[in-house]
Simulated assay, not measured.
Amino acid sequence: MAGPERVAAVAPRFIELEVLDNQQVSPHIRRVTLGGDEVSAMTPQGFDQWFRFFMRREGQEALRVPKSPSTWFPQYLAMREQHRPWIRNYTVRDFRLDAGELDIDIVCHEDPGPGAAWAMAAERGERAVLLDEGLLYNDDGLEGEILMVGDESVLPAVAGVCGSLEDDARGTVVLEIGHRDDIQEFRRPAGVDIRWVERGSLREGQAALEELRGMRMPEEFGYAYAAGEQQLATGARRHLVRDRGIDKRRITFTGYWKLGKAYVS
């Protein structure tokens, strides 16, 4: 059986946005602030609220998106290739609904993919569209300690989850980063420990997996959430199930991205 089912978005619709600010917050993380009148149509769910993000490709005069949020993918495939937008998945880093704003943190490396390249070039007024997809994190009321494992692409999700947990929550977060200056401070329960692991010369995900394999599992294990590079997410789940004997129904895992491969959606 699979782990807990994801939590659906509330009345999902296409939300039109424009870039309000764009800043480099650490060596590999860029924060894009977007806003617009339609932001208030979203329902903040906290945790790792994620969305499809539609961006204008290089050379396109205008951003074009499908018409229907429920059948967007067939419509996307039916679009002429030169008219198709870039589509990537991101997590809300912060909501400021009163101001009609939200932040997205995007990982930017030396060889940026389409999303990172867009983030580095996006100027004030640049148009974008998002489609809310709800939550992946769902502990389904399980009691016990929480374990979260990921890389820097999971930082917004971890920050959102930690900010949404009850104050008495306990657990451990293992976050692999490319540079110690990518470490971020965010609210978390006092009982949640964060282990920052620098990647060094290792392949993406290996340092986090090594840290996980060396950890002592809590006696009262509740729920695990593993995300980031695909081999990191699947490797963490495999280790927890095969080597630690944890019921797979207590684990949510998802590959945000795959080394050497760009995901369309």
Rank of each mutant, 00 (worst) to 15 (best):
R199M: 13
D37F: 13
A262W: 12
G113W: 08
G113N: 07
D111L: 12
V241W: 08
N22G: 00
G150W: 13
G113I: 00
L209T: 00
F186N: 02
D132R: 10
E219L: 12
W86A: 05
A224W: 07
V173L: 13
P12M: 10
A236Q: 11
H28S: 09
Q23R: 14
Q75S: 02
P66L: 07
G205F: 12
G205V: 03
G255P: 09
P69L: 05
L175N: 01
E110H: 08
V7N: 07
D167F: 05
R96T: 06
K67W: 06
G125V: 08
V241E: 13
R56S: 01
G235A: 14
E185M: 08
P69N: 07
A62K: 15
V92H: 14
M1R: 11
A224T: 01
G125F: 12
E110M: 03
R84D: 06
H109F: 12
P74G: 03
G46A: 06
L240S: 07
R80D: 15
L165T: 01
I177K: 13
R238D: 14
D140W: 06
L147H: 07
G200M: 03
D21Q: 03
M217W: 15
V7S: 01
A157S: 11
V154C: 15
T43L: 07
E126Q: 10
R203E: 00
K258V: 12
S70Q: 15
P44S: 06
R188Y: 04
F14V: 02
E38A: 06
M55P: 02
I183M: 15
R127P: 06
R250M: 06
E58Q: 15
A169H: 13
N22R: 01
W86L: 10
R96Y: 09
E185Y: 08
G178H: 10
H28A: 03
F73I: 01
V92N: 01
Y90P: 00
D37L: 05
R31M: 05
T33C: 13
I194Y: 14
A159Y: 11
A157C: 07
L147S: 12
A122Q: 02
E211D: 13
D48I: 01
V129H: 03
W72S: 08
V107R: 03
W257K: 04
S164A: 12
Q75T: 02
D94Q: 13
D140C: 07
A62Q: 15
M120P: 00
D247I: 11
M42N: 11
L136M: 15
A169P: 04
E143F: 04
R244S: 04
R64M: 11
R213Y: 15
E229A: 00
F186Q: 06
E101I: 08
E81H: 11
E38Q: 15
L63H: 02
R203S: 10
F14I: 03
A227C: 13
Q231G: 04
R187V: 07
D37I: 01
P112F: 15
I246S: 04
A128W: 01
A11V: 11
P12N: 10
R199D: 05
V107G: 04
I183W: 13
V39E: 10
A116F: 08
F53L: 08
F221H: 11
E219H: 10
